[in-house]
Structures are given as structure tokens and as C-alpha cells.
Design a protein around this nucleic acid. Structure first.
Length: 693
RNA sequence: GCGCCCGUAGCUCAAUGGAUAGAGCAGCGGACUUCUAAUCCGCAGGUUGCUGGUUCGAGUCCAGCCGGGCGCGCCA
């Protein structure tokens, strides 16, 4: 993947869990547990009850309460408190004795069966089934499904997507866009204030390239007919010519490097002899890897060069524009210096570029509160650098203005020798602007993990500027890989365009939808337009969910087959689960509003019903967990588990044909709650449901 | 060389220092005249890369090693 395709890349480890829990407004601090509407996070409530008895034993009850969790095995109850063991160590007393003491003072009779102390000192808590049913009845009446908003809302700025607008979006943009959008939705639902901001690359070298292309290569008719397509073509053409010349200039150096590396490899082999020891073997492998890497790089450039040489028209263009690299930089510099004509063209191009990316955002259902690109900060950069210099945070080095940071092998450069600013400069100015404008408690950067060093430097720099009470968080994610274990590319080695990716996903979804509908026992149910709409939703959802379900910190292997599978943790499976529930209501001719208003009791007499009911109540917990480390995958995991509970229930418990009317009403309510949690949960991930599929 | 991340079932991935490491796919065996079988249920599959350490308890924390990815002064 072209590293320039992303304004940013990269990610450091997430903050420690303890810090998150102590943070004001963190997951533990929900609204009053008995707040209006009966909204209650079960785990939070249990912790609240345990806090009293714990206060007598430790001056750090928060740490202990962190060890209250959902039970891993049903036989140990629904929740478990694991703090007696560390507390026992700390106090020099038997853990079981401590557990017994806590249990003796614990007042949970209204919501739990009598707590049990097990094993070394686990406190097992089993909720009273009737209590679960009451909470569910409240959730039925609650638009938030019983999930309380946080007591202390925080102000978040979320920075995500940030493509370079001069060129089509590609596969590298999907994770930032999808994860960032999901985080915004989840934070808002949790009750936080959120400003989403798309920090577009709208001011860099890419516009110099378009300007150069427009001046020298434009097809006026094509530009008038479709400016977006023509600008994209110009960008690609200039990029190609620049790569050609850069590559040609680089090849001799690379070949030199290769022969040096080959010589080094040979030397290592000679020195090691026939039976290399461990150290030598390692050195050899390393040298081999160097040789292979340089070889690959050479092969890639040679292919690019050859492609141009083999095309007479292109080759002629390349020959005529030998100085294109410098010329493009000059166009960029003129733009930045305020050249009237370049500015006029930039203003003319920008809306077209925006149309291009907005079309993709519309299709993805992704929106932003603000789209303040790099250009927005242009006139602040001078002052930012001056301030850094004045406060002796930055200093001149080799003609550049640099911020030197402890433990960093290289400085963060905020002004180049030639006087130009860099994106690090813009990032500093952007933080200043955001702090002045929104006074956020946290700024999240949803950017791929290769940028971790940049963010470490950026955050350290702005801390020195005095911004110390804001949580600056690089929410990093891994690379999208192909099934060959290398970054996802087309067969010809190009990066994969985002729209093509969407088209392919929708096309494959359409095939699945058609096959399924055709195979329905009672004949097809969906007219062609409905099928198309379902396919669009299923396809886009599959793509988004596959991304969100993956732990964001690891790379993931892109696979249409896997993401569109009906089994397993996929959007398709979740959407199907939802549609199946809805189909019960359609088949039974149920008036859902009347059902919800009926006040019918929820009965949880079978294990499947109880398990489903309890799982429905865990929605808020799952959301907390997802926001703790900004990991949407925690929410997808929950939804998948909920769907699993529903499947078991669905197999074992007849709904429309339940033995009694009361049981029928209860089960319908469970179905309805399940559907609502799935729909809401998917909505928080930016994914739409379908009523039929 | 330095820094960051990763290594879990054949494959793709889960698992906030807690009790017997879980899913899906692939494999094997079952369940449609019964609310969508695009589904469900069961079986099998593991020395969590290796070695040592911390801990009442380690896939998780620490050290070293092995293997892989990414990054490391004027690109974004």
C-alpha cells in the first residue's frame, strides 16, 4: 500500500485499565443506580452494593471492585467478585474469611440469591430470576433498553478517516473511517458529548500534483463533463510520472545497496563456515532478509519503470516532464505562499474532490460534525512554530526547526530547511485550535499503528505546551491484509479502491440474497427493488462488521467469503437473526406497540429464557467494555453472544405456539427486546438491519 | 543497531491476573409435514513459540531467547 495514501498511520498501546476506571465519568460512574426509568447497569449496581462492605476493609475499594465481573461459568453464578484473594494477601488474613465478612455485610437480598463463597475465596452472585424479569419489563418500556447514560459526560473530539482528497479513497481508509464512526456513535449513546472531525489532507503535495497535471495534461472536455474523474486521472498520471523519474533515479542506488547487502551476506556465510553457530545463523538470516527486501523493492520499481517505457505515449510524456518532481513541489509551494492563480484553482478543485469522497461517505452512512482539513490551519502554522521556538520547546538544527524529545531517536520536525511546514506542524496547531474551541476532555486519533511514533512525539510536544489535562489517545489499528499474508492489494499490485471494495461486497451479497429468497419454501418474498436494497445493506454491513469485530490492534485478513458467511460472528448472521425475530411478529400479526404497552409479565422459567434475559440486560456492560479501551469488537462479541442465546431460545421455546397466552406474550417480549438490542447495537456500529432477507 | 506491536486448535480469530483457554471455518455425526435449515445440536481438535521469574492464581505481568510485522531528520 502506498504509504502516502494515508495522511496518517499507526498506534501505541492503549492506556492502562486502572487509569481508565479512576477517570471521572469512566464506566463505573453511571447515573444514580435507581435513576428514573429503572435504568440499571447490573455490574455497576453490584459494585455499588459491594462498595460499602469493602470500605471497612480497604482504603482502595476501587481496585477491589475492578475484580467484580461477569461469571465465566454458569455454575459459579451470574457474577463473581474476585477481590478476597488479593485483599487477603494485603491484610494477612485468609481470603475465605474476608469473603465471608463481605458477604455477611452485603445487602443484595432484593436482587440476588444468597451469595456463596467458593474455592479460595470467590464470591459467587446469582441474580434472582424474578429480579431479572423486572429489569427486563423496565427495559421494554425504555427507549434506551435499560442502559443508563454516564453520570459525568465528557467532551470528546474524534479525529478519523482523514483521506487525501485529491485521490480516490482506498482500502487503507476503511478501518479509520468505520472504527471512528462506531466510536462516535457509542460515545454519544453512552451520554458523552462528541465532536467528530475529518482532518482531510486537502493542502499537501497532492494538490501540487493536480495543479501540475491540470496545467499540462488536462482534457478540457473531460474536465467539464466530469471534473472528479478527470482530476483523479490527472492525479494518477502525475503520480505515475513522478514515480517513474524517482524510481529511475533511485534504481542505481538500490542496486548498489543490493550488491553491498549481497556481499555482506556472502561474508557472513564465509565467516560462519559449514556449521554456523546460533549468532551467525541469525546474522545470516538477517542479511538474507535485507537482500530479499531490497530485491523486492527493486523489482517493484523496475516494473513501474518498464510499464512506462513500454507505453510509447507515456514514455514520451515522461521524457518531456523530466523535472516533474521539483515542478510539483514548486506548485505546492506557490499554493502555500498564496499565489492567486493556484489558490483560485485549488478553490475550484476542492468541491469536486469533496464530492468524490462524500459519495463514499454517504454510501457508508458515515457523517462528521466538522470537516476541518489541513488547509484550515494553514495561517496558524507560522505562529505555532514561533511559539514553540519562543518557549524553547523547539530549536534550529541543520536549518530545520525541531522538537527534541527524550527517548526519541529523531526529533519531530515542525519546519523544514526550505521553510515549509509539515503535517506535524499542522497537528500541533490543530490541537491548539481544538482545545481553544471545544475544550475537550479527550481527543481520539483513529489512525493506523504505523504512526505511533509520530503521535508519541506529538503528544509529548503539546504536553510541553501546557495541554496536560486532556487525554490524547492514539486509537491505533492494524493493516488490512490479503489472504497471502501481505497488505491487501489487487492482483496487479495496486491498492484496492474503496468503492470497488463496496461494489464487490454488495455484488456478492446480492447473489446470496437472490439464492436465499429463491429457495424459500413458500416461494420468493422479495421484489427486485427490495432485493437490491437488502443486498446493499448486507454487503456494506459485512464489510464494516468484519472490520469492527476484529480486535483493532491486530492486522486482519480480508475475505469476502468470511465476512458474508451466515455462520459465525458476521453482520450477515446478526442481520439474519434480526430478520428472523421480525418474521415472527409478521407471521403472528403482532401489534408490537400494543404488546409493549400490555404490561405482560416476563417469565424466565426455562434455562434458555433466563440466559437470554440476562444477556439482554448486559447490553450496557458490553458498551462500557467497548469504550474502556475504545474497542468496538467488545460490542460485536456481545451481540454475537446475544444472538447465540437467542438461537438456543428459538430452538427450545415455541413463541407463537406457546402453551399459554401469558407465556406467548412473555416470549414475544423477549423476542422484541432481542431484536431491539440487536438493532440498537448494530446502529451503534453504524450498521443497518433489514426486516426481511 | 534502537523502538513499538504480534506469536493461542489444521485455518481465521476470541479470552478486562481468576475456577476446566473459547468461537467460526474446515472434518465427523445428528435435526426441516413444526415461528426463515442463510439455521440449530453434538463429537473431535491445545505443552497458548521456547526458557526462566513474579503471584494464592499467568495466554495475560517481568527478563532472556526464537520467529514475524512495522517504524527510526526535513513524506504524509
Amino acid at each position: 500500500m502506498d504509504p502516502r495514501g494515508l495522511r496518517r498511520r499507526g498506534g501505541p498501546p492503549v492506556r492502562s485499565r486502572g487509569a481508565a476506571l479512576l477517570r471521572p465519568g469512566g464506566p463505573l460512574e453511571h447515573g444514580r443506580p435507581r435513576a428514573a426509568g429503572g435504568r440499571m447497569n447490573v455490574l455497576t449496581e453490584l459494585k455499588r452494593r459491594l462498595a460499602g462492605p469493602l470500605a471497612a476493609l480497604t482504603d482502595r475499594p476501587g481496585e477491589a471492585l475492578d475484580l467484580v465481573r461477569r461469571g465465566q461459568d454458569p455454575k459459579f453464578g451470574d457474577y463473581q467478585a474476585n477481590f478476597a484473594m488479593p485483599l487477603g494477601k494485603q491484610l494477612g488474613r485468609p481470603p475465605r474469611e474476608i469473603a465471608a465478612e463481605v458477604v455477611a455485610r452485603l445487602d443484595v437480598a432484593d436482587l440476588c440469591e444468597p451469595p456463596e463463597v467458593a474455592g479460595p475465596g470467590f464470591i459467587n452472585l446469582r441474580l434472582r430470576t424474578a429480579w431479572i424479569a423486572e429489569r427486563l419489563a423496565e427495559a421494554v418500556r425504555d427507549e434506551r433498553l435499560g442502559v443508563p447514560p454516564v453520570a459525568k459526560p465528557r467532551m470528546f473530539v474524534v479525529d478519523y478517516s482523514a483521506p487525501n482528497v485529491a485521490k480516490p479513497m482506498h482500502v487503507g481508509h476503511i478501518r479509520s473511517t468505520v472504527i471512528g464512526d462506531a466510536l462516535c456513535r457509542m460515545l454519544r449513546f453512552a451520554g458523552h458529548r462528541v465532536v467528530s472531525d475529518n482532518h482531510l489532507g486537502d493542502w499537501g503535495t497532492q494538490f501540487g500534483m493536480i495543479l501540475y497535471g491540470y496545467r499540462h495534461f488536462r482534457d478540457e472536455a473531460a474536465y467539464r463533463a466530469g471534473p472528479v474523474g478527470e482530476l483523479a486521472r490527472l492525479y494518477r498520471l502525475v503520480r505515475r510520472l513522478m514515480d517513474y523519474h524517482e524510481g529511475k533515479a533511485l534504481l542505481p542506488k538500490l542496486r548498489e545497496k543490493l550488491s553491498q547487502q549481497q556481499a555482506a551476506l556472502a561474508a557472513e556465510r564465509d565467516a560462519a563456515g559449514a556449521k554456523p553457530d546460533k549468532g551467525a545463523a541469525k546474522a545470516i538470516r538477517r542479511a538474507e532478509s535485507d537482500v530479499a527486501q531490497t530485491g523486492d523493492q527493486i523489482a517493484q520499481i523496475e516494473a513501474q519503470v518498464k510499464a512506462v517505457d513500454d507505453d510509447p505515449a507515456l514514455a514520451q510524456l515522461a521524457a518531456r516532464h523530466a523535472e516533474i518532481g521539483a515542478a510539483v513541489l514548486a506548485e505546492t509551494a506557490k499554493l502555500h505562499a498564496g499565489d492567486a492563480e493556484n489558490l483560485r484553482l485549488w478553490r475550484e478543485f476542492l468541491p469536486h474532490c469533496r464530492d468524490e469522497i462524500d459519495r463514499v461517505y454517504r454510501r457508508l452512512g458515515v457523517t462528521f460534525d466538522h470537516v476541518l482539513g489541513e488547509s484550515y490551519y494553514h495561517d496558524r502554522l507560522e505562529a505555532t512554530v514561533a511559539d514553540l521556538l519562543r518557549r524553547e520547546i523547539a530549536r534550529e538544527s541543520n536549518g530545520a526547526i525541531c522538537v527534541f524529545l527524550e527517548g526519541q531517536p529523531a526529533p519531530m520536525i515542525v519546519r523544514k530547511q526550505d521553510g515549509a511546514f509539515l503535517y506535524a506542524t499542522t497537528d500541533v496547531a490543530t490541537i491548539e485550535y481544538r482545545m481553544e474551541t471545544w475544550r475537550p476532555d479527550a481527543i481520539l486519533y483513529v489512525v493506523d499503528h504505523r504512526q505511533s511514533m509520530h503521535f508519541a512525539q506529538l503528544f509529548a510536544t503539546v504536553k510541553r505546551l501546557g495541554y496536560s489535562d486532556v487525554e490524547l489517545q492514539h486509537v491505533s489499528f492494524g493493516t488490512v491484509m490479503g489472504d497471502d499474508g501481505r497488505p491487501f492489494r489487487t492482483r496487479s499490485g495496486d491498492t484496492v479502491g474503496l468503492e470497488g471494495l463496496l461494489d464487490e461486497a454488495v455484488e456478492r451479497a446480492a447473489r446470496i440474497v437472490n439464492e436465499n429468497d429463491d429457495a424459500k419454501p413458500g416461494g420468493p418474498e422479495l421484489p427486485p427493488e427490495a432485493r437490491a436494497q437488502v443486498a446493499e445493506r448486507v454487503g456494506i454491513a459485512a464489510l464494516k462488521y468484519a472490520d469492527l469485530a476484529q480486535n483493532r490492534t491486530s492486522d486482519y485478513v480480508f475475505s469476502y467469503d468470511k465476512m458474508l458467511a451466515m455462520n459465525g460472528n458476521t453482520a450477515t448472521y446478526m442481520q439474519y437473526a434480526y430478520a428472523r425475530v421480525r418474521s415472527i411478529f409478521a407471521r403472528g400479526g403482532i401489534d408490537v406497540d400494543a404488546l409493549r404497552a400490555s404490561g405482560a409479565a416476563i417469565l424466565l422459567d426455562t434455562p434458555a429464557e433466563r440466559a437470554l434475559g440476562l444477556e439482554i440486560l448486559r447490553f450496557g456492560e458490553a458498551l462500557d467494555l467497548a469504550l474502556l479501551d475504545y474497542r468496538p469488537s467488545q460490542l460485536t462479541t456481545y451481540l454475537f453472544e446475544l444472538a447465540g442465546c437467542y438461537s438456543t431460545f428459538f430452538e427450545q421455546c415455541p413463541v407463537l405456539k406457546a402453551e399459554t397466552d401469558a407465556l406467548r406474550a412473555s416470549r414475544l417480549l423477549l423476542c422484541d427486546l432481542t431484536a431491539r438490542v440487536i438493532r440498537r447495537g448494530l446502529e451503534l456500529l453504524g450498521i443497518e438491519v433489514v426486516e426481511k432477507m
